[in-house]
Design a protein around this nucleic acid. Structure first.
Lengths: 125, 125
DNA sequence: GGCTCTCGTTACCGTCGGAAACCACGTATC
DNA sequence: GATACGTGGTTTCCGACGGTAACGAGAGCC
């Protein structure tokens, strides 16, 4: 599911949770950061990585994250122009939290259906 | 900021991130789980722990999380009746992700203003 | 009688996300 | 020359969610 933006309420100044959620917050943000954790990706690549996200929201989230200094936007002078998004050093600092979420999810999937995981071809090769 | 609920879009069946976000998702959810990580807490205690959350949203989030099996609701037959919320074993499994978020936040706060952290009385005693 | 505390519920409104259409530009194909 | 496609978005409309404020019953206190 999703993280929503809090527009009106300001974070408590000294709260670590609020400090981190101010960057992680927003619908699809964790998914976007997870997709960027392997290296720079283009707009259309992000759409394919996260099929359920709409172009509008992806645009919004990328603009938000750029404004917050989490990622950088690079426009390449090709034709048609391609745009690459890349995590900044601040973005990299968020990855431990993202990886932890993925780890917890993996553990839950394993518990849900261990036979499915063992039988999966992608885990054998 | 906030995690928002995705009502229409279903999670990909085998995606670890989606599996975890299906439980972590929703506005204020990480904050609530973090507050409950120390042990059971009552409704009014949660409101004091997270001053910015409204009663309406807190009620909704607690109902959601109960339905998903993340926490349990205990009504004590006192007068006035007190209600306690407690993490289930499933809820406990989410804590590594929550702790990781808090750790990242702490590191960011330290980087923001190291002198402030050192000077803080709460960290000296 | 009034004030407080408990744990919520309700109504209203603003904002955000979802869906689909549309856009300019350049390339490729027919 | 016309059509189609791939880029990286923008625009419009609508429904769902969160924020705010008011209100609720039952009990204790002065």
């Amino acid at each position: 599911m999703v993280l929503r933006m809090r527009t009106k309420v300001k974070a408590l100044p000294g709260c670590p949770m609020s400090r981190c959620m101010a960057l992680l917050g927003g619908c699809w943000t964790p998914e976007v950061l997870w997709s960027l954790s392997d290296g720079p990706r283009r707009f259309s690549e992000l759409r394919r990585d996260i099929p359920a996200i709409s172009a509008k929201v992806l645009t919004g989230r990328l603009r938000d994250l750029e404004e917050r200094g989490v990622l950088a936007r690079h426009v390449m002078p090709t034709s048609p122009p391609t745009v690459e998004y890349e995590l900044t050093s601040l973005g990299q600092e968020l990855l431990p939290a993202i990886r932890s979420i993925v780890e917890v999810g993996s553990r839950l999937l394993l518990r849900d259906s261990p036979r499915l995981m063992i039988a999966s071809p992608s885990l054998r090769g």
